[in-house]
Amino acid sequence: MMTRRWSTFALLSLAILVVAGIGWAGSDIFQRFVIDMLVKLVVVLGLAVFVGNSGVFSFGHASFAALGAYSSAWFTLPVAAKKIFLPQLPAFALSTQVGLPTGAAIGVAFASLVGLAIGVIIVQLSGLGASIATVAWLAIVTTVLANADAYTRGTSSLVGLPLATGIGAALVSALLALFIAFLFKTSRYGLMLQASREDEVAAKATGISVRAVRLWAFVLSAALVALGGILQGHFRGVLTVSQFYFEFTYLTLAMLVIGGIRSLSGAVIGTFLVAGCAEMLRIVSGGFEIAGLMVPALPGLREIGLALMMLIVLLARPRGIMGSREFTWPVKTG
């Protein structure tokens, strides 16, 4: 049983490795696309830890991506850039520069602490109430960050982040996120949380402290999403508050739901499918030549095609592509 479970992890890792390998060997454009997709995967796996296991939808996790990204940038920005753009930072942050791994550790720690604080409140609420609270939380964090000029430059962007997210960093992070998500899902706490997802009352009756396990999942998931945000910041080189708002939330949640929230294989498939379709449609919509025939550029095709693809998958498979199945070896799924 244990080995079959781990075969899921092995298969998914292999899939990620293969994708990263192709990205590494591919053109610059393809490589950018793969890095971006792996970064999104870290976020989606992070969401899966909480949303997938608990069944409670969070629209607020983008806040942790933002908090992680900004707090890591306080330390990874070159000192010279910090003196120009964030002169009011506390002296100890202003005078140090650390690499991405240390910066990421700081960012993840910070976001997790904040996640713990707000998580305590959110797990008091049930179902949609909790979801709305996360929406409200995201609005609060966005507003505060957009006006905390001394720490974030507010609505102005923070530039100069070292471009440290390469294919290597993205790959390692995606594998790490998968490992953690997998470990949690198959752990006692993960199973307790899944029990509460299927029947909260029954789960409580068997002595599961639903609030406690939800809280820990919330914090763990905040940490992983923060890691994704940190990677995104160091991939683009620029941080804006708006990059961690509804579009981010909607896209990553859609990836999770399309793959199937109950399955980690689903999280991976959903991310690859949505990101892959988006990139394919981007290329096609730019216009191309086929057998001497010019296909003109079709603006809007990518967005409309993507929305239609999502709708069709949702209508055909309301529980996501994978439902609650996982890939296992041998091929039997279950």
Binding site: Y250, L253, A254, E303, A307, M310, L311, L314
Partner: peptide, 9 residues
């Protein structure tokens, strides 16, 4: 999520 996708469309 369906309503999100519809809204985006």
């Amino acid at each position: 999520i369906t309503s999100f996708a519809l809204s985006y469309l």
